[in-house]
């Protein structure tokens, strides 16, 4: 069901990245490269700059020094071209509580060509099958999270950037998400995530430990 085509080239590179927050160096001389089939987990203690790096890589934060390249060109040169190739999910779900899961999902996938049938199937897959007509305020935190994550089922973008996606998910949800990530990577896509969750069962997993480079 994932529409990732193996032919799409994923080539995201960060060179000599330096990021300061309030006169504190979060990381410097940082090199990151992500290509097809990669699963990159950003690890490190709280405050090490995981989310900051993730947002830099997603192109959401332009406050850095160094180079950030997508297919060899600076990310900012053609940002919408890059944005159309990657999915970004922050730790905020962007789910409106007064709307139903389906209505929320329609908004979340509005940049892509996805039919309502596919969205129904996606909601079924995240076990929200019976809740299509329930407003999200009646759902639990984990269920609201699943609404946002349901778009992973229909995402045509080869690169996923996810901030703490396992938060609030139950065991079944965690297993489902692990499977999704694995399929994305095996299909030639790539994933960058921050998570404290151990992801050992995915073969191509790489970890980038932040916070250790600080003097």
């Amino acid at each position: 069901m994932t529409a990732t085509s193996g032919s799409t080239i994923i080539d995201l590179q960060a060179r000599k990245l330096l990021c300061e927050r309030d006169d504190r160096v979060l990381f410097e001389q940082l090199d990151v490269a992500v290509g097809n089939g990669d699963l990159l987990q950003l690890a490190g203690p709280n405050g090490a700059g995981k989310t900051t790096l993730l947002r830099l890589l997603a192109g959401l934060n332009r406050d850095y020094e160094g180079e950030l390249l997508w297919r060899g060109e600076p990310l900012t040169d053609d940002f919408s071209a890059y944005a159309s190739q990657r999915l970004y999910q922050g730790h905020l779900a962007a789910v409106k509580k007064a709307l139903t899961p389906l209505e929320n999902l329609r908004w979340l996938v509005s940049s892509w060509n996805v039919s309502d049938d596919q969205l129904w199937a996606a909601l079924d897959e995240v076990e929200l099958g019976g809740y299509e007509e329930t407003a999200c305020q009646q759902l639990s935190a984990g269920q609201q999270r699943r609404v946002a994550l349901a778009r992973l089922c229909v995402a045509p973008t080869p690169l996923w950037i996810l901030d703490e996606p396992f938060t609030a998910l139950d065991k079944a949800g965690v297993r489902w998400l692990e499977g999704r990530l694995q399929r994305q990577v095996e299909g030639g896509g790539a994933v960058i995530i921050t998570s404290h969750h151990a992801l050992e069962n995915i073969a191509s997993l790489r970890q980038l430990e932040l916070g250790s480079t600080r003097a």
Partner: peptide
């Protein structure tokens, strides 16, 4: 306000639109 708080704004910016 709601869009900033619930992450919708983040999604707009991420969309590149």
């Amino acid at each position: 306000k709601a869009d900033v708080d619930d992450g919708s704004l983040e999604q707009w910016l991420a969309s590149g639109e």
